[in-house]
Amino acid sequence: MAQFRLNGTKMLAVDLAGETIRALNGSMVAYEGQMTFKRQGMTGGEGLRGALKRRIAGEGMTLMEITGQGTVYLASEATEVTLVHLAGDTLFAESESLLALDGNLQTGVHFVGLRGMGTGQGLATTKVEGRGTAAIVSDGPAIALEVTPQTPLCVDPHAYVGHLGRLQQDVVTDVNWRTVLGQGSGESVQFRYQGQGLVYVQPAERGGVLEI
C-alpha cells in the first residue's frame, strides 16, 4: 500500500512501489524515481452517473492519477496538510480540501441540500470511503474536534474542513433584525454536529475560496 507521510507541515511525501494514488491536479512539486501523471477522465472513477451528479452539484474536482516507483512530493499553495486514516468509514470534505487519496478509496458526491447555499459551500460535499489514507489541506493547521452523543459541536461553516464518523449535520441560525440591517455579529449561521465522530476545523475563515 502507498505510504503517506508528512514532510514538514505543508508537504506530503508518498512512497510508491507500483501503486496508484490520486492527487489534486498540478499539486506535484518534486519527485524521485519513475512517475507518470495522468489526468483522470471525465468520470473520475465515479461512473457516468457520478460524473453527472458532480456536474449538477457544481462540486468540481480535478484529480490526476500518479503511478510509479519512488517518492512523490505534493503540496498546494503552502496550505497545511493533515492525514486522515480511513478504516472503512466515510470522510466528508469540500472538494477543494482534498490533496491526495489512496488508490483504494472511492469518492462520490453527497448532497447537503439547500442549507449549503447560504454558506457558500454549494449544494454538495465530496465523500471519500474505503480503506486507506486521505490527505486534506487547510488554511493554517487543522484541528480535529471530537463529537460524542453528550457533546454536540457547532462550527463556523467557513472554518469547516471536513468530518468523519457517524454524524448528523444540521444548520443553526441566529438571524435577527440586526443581521438583516448588516449589523450582525458575523456568526449568524453555524453547522451543528451530533453523534459520534470527528470534525476538522481550520483557524481561518474562507470567503468561498482558499486564500492565504
Binding site: 514538514g8 505543508k10 512539486v29 503552502a78
Partner: peptide, 9 residues
C-alpha cells in the same frame, strides 16, 4: 541539493 517550496506560486 535542490530547494523546493511547498507551493506553486
Amino acid at each position: 541539493v535542490v530547494y523546493v517550496q511547498a507551493s506553486e506560486r
